[in-house]
Design a protein around this nucleic acid. Structure first.
Length: 596
DNA sequence: TTAGGGTTAG
C-alpha cells in the first residue's frame, strides 16, 4: 500500500504519464519474451480468460492490490503468459500498468518477474521516469550488473541528458550505485558535447571523478573539446600538456586538431605553433587535418598568403593534399585577389589527378564573378555540369549575384527564371540578390514585383533584405514605397536597423518633405538612436532650402549634441542663406550656435 | 564509445 500511496501521489503531478502506448507495447513484448514456458492450447485459453478478468478488476476497482491474489488462483495469475496478456491489454493505460508492475514486484518471490527483468523491460521501453519511480517506490535493489546496463542505456538512449544525470545522482543517493563502466561516462560526455551542453559535460565529469573512475583518451578528448567550445583553448592546451607530461596517456590528433582550429579562429597563431610543437614533442604527429585547420583558419582571417606558404611547405614535408585542401586554398587566394596563384593551385590539383567537386567549382566560379570575368565564370559552370557535378542553390545564387554586380541584370533574370526548371528551389537569398540587382540598375518596378512575388511564395525575408530594399527606394525618392516596406517589415516582427531610419529621413529630404523628415529625426533621438552625420546634414540642407531657418538651427543644435561637426561647404551655404536680408535674426542665432 | 571540414547571401 505504501507503493500505492506513492503512486497516487505521483499521479497528481503527472509523473507516471511518461509512458506512450508504443512504449507500453514494447514493455509487454519484452515481458512476453520472458515467458519461455510452453503449455497447451486449452491452458493458454484459460490464462487469457483470467487475464481478461483481472484487467476488468483492476480497471474498475479503485483498490485491488490487497485482494487480487485471493480472487484468482495464484498459478494462473502469476503465470508468465497471463501476466504478458495483462500487460498487453493494459498497454494503453500507463498508470495501471505501473501499478500492476509494482504489485508484481511485491510478489516477486512467487513469480519470475525479478526486479532485474522489470528494470530491463522498462529501460528497453525507454520509460526512464517510470524506471526510476519503480526503483524508488519498491525500494528493491536490482543486481549491480542490471543497474549497470540500465545506466549505460540511460546515458546512451535517454532523450534528456540532464534527466539522465539526475537519475544517476539519485541511484547513487538511494541505492549507493554508481556506474563503473568508463564507456557509460564517455557516452554521456560525448552526447552532452554533441548537443552543445558543455555545462553537462562538466557535471558528468565531476560525478565521474567523484565515483573514482579514471578517464581515458576519449574522456580527455571530450574535456578538451568542451574547453574549446567555451573558447577556453588555453585551458585545454594546459590540460593536454599536463596529461602528456605524466606519460599516462597520449591525447589523439583529433583532440589537438580541435585545439588548433580554436586557436586559428581566435587568430592566436602563437598558441597554434605551441600546440603543434607539443604534438611533435609527445610523438603525436600532426595529420593533414591538423594543417588543414591551420590553412583554413589563415584563409578565413584574410591571411591567404601565409596559408599558401604553409600549404606549399607541408607538401615538401611529405603531406599529400586532397580536394578539400585545394578547394580551401583556391578559395582563399581568389578572395585575396591572387588569381594567378589560384590558377596555379588549380592546375597542380588537376596534375595530381584529383577531381574537383561541386565546392571546388563554386569557389572558382565565385572568384571569376568577383573579378568581373563572367565569361570565364560561365565556362567553369558549364565544365562543372559536364563533369557531373550538381548545381545547387549556392552555385545559382553565385552566378546570379555575379551577373547582377557586373550589370548583366537581364542575364541574371534569365538564370533566376530558369531555376525551377533546373530543379532548384529559390531561397530568400536568391530573391534578395535579384532584387538588389534590379535596385542597382534602377529597375524599381521589377524589384517591387519580385518583392511581392517573394511574399506570395511564402518566403521569409530577413532584416538585411529589407534594409537594402528600403535604402534603394529611398535613394530613388520613392519614400511611400519605402514606408510601405518598412511597415511590412515591422508587422512581421522584424526590428529595423538604425540605419534604416537614416535612409528614410534622407529619402524624405530628397523628395523635399523636410517636415516629415524632421519628425522622424526627433523620433529617432527620442528612441535613443544615433542618426548618421549625413542624415543631419541632409536635413539641415533640406530645411534651409525650404526657408525654414529656425528648424534648420534646431536640427543643427541636435547635430552638435550628437557630437558631429557641420561640413565646411554646407556651413558656408547655410550662413550665406541665413545672412540674406530675410534672416538677419537667424543668422545671428547661427553664429551663436557655432560660437559655443 | 567517438569521428573530422569547405562554397553564395548577410
Amino acid at each position: 500500500m505504501a507503493a500505492m500511496r506513492h503512486l497516487l501521489r505521483s499521479n497528481n503531478n503527472g509523473y507516471l504519464y511518461c509512458f506512450s502506448t508504443h512504449q507500453i507495447r514494447r514493455i509487454a513484448t519484452a515481458d512476453a519474451t520472458l515467458d519461455h514456458s510452453t503449455c497447451g492450447v486449452k491452458r493458454q485459453k484459460k490464462l487469457k480468460e483470467v487475464a481478461r478478468r483481472v484487467c476488468d478488476v483492476i480497471r474498475r476497482r479503485p483498490t485491488w492490490e490487497s485482494t487480487l491474489l485471493s480472487e484468482f488462483p495464484q498459478e494462473d495469475l502469476l503465470h508468465p503468459s497471463c501476466i504478458a496478456e495483462i500487460f498487453r491489454r493494459q498497454s494503453g493505460n500507463a498508470l495501471l500498468t505501473l501499478r500492476f508492475y509494482l504489485w508484481l514486484s511485491s510478489h516477486q518471490g512467487a513469480n519470475r518477474f525479478s526486479p532485474e527483468a522489470i528494470l530491463s523491460a522498462l529501460s528497453k521501453a525507454k520509460a526512464w521516469k517510470a524506471s526510476l519511480h519503480f526503483l524508488r517506490s519498491t525500494k528493491c535493489r536490482p543486481q549491480t550488473s542490471s543497474l549497470e546496463s540500465f545506466a549505460a542505456r540511460l546515458c546512451e538512449e535517454g532523450n534528456d541528458l540532464e534527466e539522465s544525470l539526475e537519475t544517476i545522482l539519485e541511484l547513487k543517493r538511494v541505492l549507493d550505485f554508481s556506474p563503473s563502466l568508463l564507456l557509460t561516462w564517455n557516452t554521456a560526455l560525448s552526447r552532452s558535447l554533441r548537443i552543445g551542453r558543455t555545462d553537462l559535460v562538466w557535471r558528468f565529469y565531476e560525478e565521474m571523478i567523484n565515483c573514482g573512475i579514471a578517464g581515458d583518451a576519449t574522456t580527455i578528448r571530450c574535456i578538451a573539446q568542451a574547453f574549446c567550445k567555451e573558447g577556453k583553448m588555453s585551458e585545454a592546451l594546459e590540460l593536454l600538456r599536463d596529461i602528456s607530461k605524466g606519460g599516462v596517456m597520449t591525447p589523439d590528433a583529433f583532440t589537438f586538431n580541435k585545439l588548433v582550429s580554436g586557436f586559428c579562429r581566435a587568430k592566436n597563431y602563437e598558441k597554434v605553433s605551441e600546440t603543434l610543437h607539443l604534438m611533435i614533442q609527445i610523438g603525436c604527429k600532426p595529420t593533414i587535418f591538423t594543417y588543414q585547420e591551420v590553412i583554413y583558419g589563415l584563409c578565413r582571417n584574410g591571411m591567404a598568403g601565409e596559408a599558401y606558404r604553409v600549404f606549399n611547405d607541408i607538401k615538401y614535408r611529405g603531406y599529400v593534399h586532397n580536394v578539400f585542401s585545394y578547394t580551401m586554398m583556391i578559395d582563399g587566394l581568389c578572395k585575396m585577389g591572387q588569381v594567378e596563384h589560384a590558377r596555379d593551385v588549380w592546375q597542380e590539383m588537376m596534375r595530381n589527378g584529383l577531381v574537383p567537386n561541386e565546392y571546388t567549382y563554386n569557389v572558382v566560379v565565385y572568384g571569376y564573378c568577383k573579378m568581373g570575368d563572367m565569361d570565364e565564370a560561365k565556362k567553369m559552370y558549364e565544365e562543372m555540369l559536364s563533369r557531373g557535378c550538381k548545381e545547387s542553390i549556392v552555385s545559382c545564387n553565385t552566378m546570379i549575384g555575379g551577373l547582377c554586380s557586373n550589370g548583366r541584370i537581364d542575364e541574371a533574370w534569365e538564370w533566376f527564371e530558369r531555376m525551377p526548371d533546373r530543379g532548384i528551389d529559390r531561397d530568400s537569398n536568391t530573391y534578395s540578390i535579384m532584387i538588389q540587382g534590379f535596385c542597382q540598375g534602377g529597375r524599381m518596378k521589377e524589384a517591387l514585383d519580385l518583392y511581392y512575388n517573394l511574399l506570395e511564395v511564402g518566403l521569409q525575408p530577413r532584416v538585411a533584405f529589407y534594409t537594402r530594399m528600403i535604402q534603394a527606394f529611398c535613394e530613388e525618392g520613392n519614400v511611400s514605397m519605402a514606408t510601405e516596406i518598412l511597415n511590412d517589415m515591422v508587422s512581421r516582427g522584424l526590428e529595423p536597423l538604425v540605419i534604416t531610419h537614416d535612409y528614410m529621413i534622407s529619402g524624405h529630404c530628397r523628395r523635399g518633405d523636410a517636415c516629415t523628415a524632421m519628425g522622424l529625426l526627433w523620433k529617432m533621438l527620442k528612441g535613443k538612436m544615433r542618426p548618421r552625420c549625413a542624415t543631419f546634414e541632409n536635413l539641415v540642407e533640406s530645411l534651409s532650402l525650404a526657408d525654414r531657418a529656425g528648424d534648420a538651427l534646431r536640427v543643427l543644435d541636435a547635430m552638435y549634441k550628437a557630437g558631429y561637426v557641420l561640413g565646411t561647404s554646407l556651413c558656408h551655404s547655410l550662413v550665406g542663406r541665413l545672412c540674406s536680408e530675410n534672416h538677419q535674426h537667424a543668422g545671428e542665432h547661427l553664429e551663436e550656435v557655432l560660437g559655443r
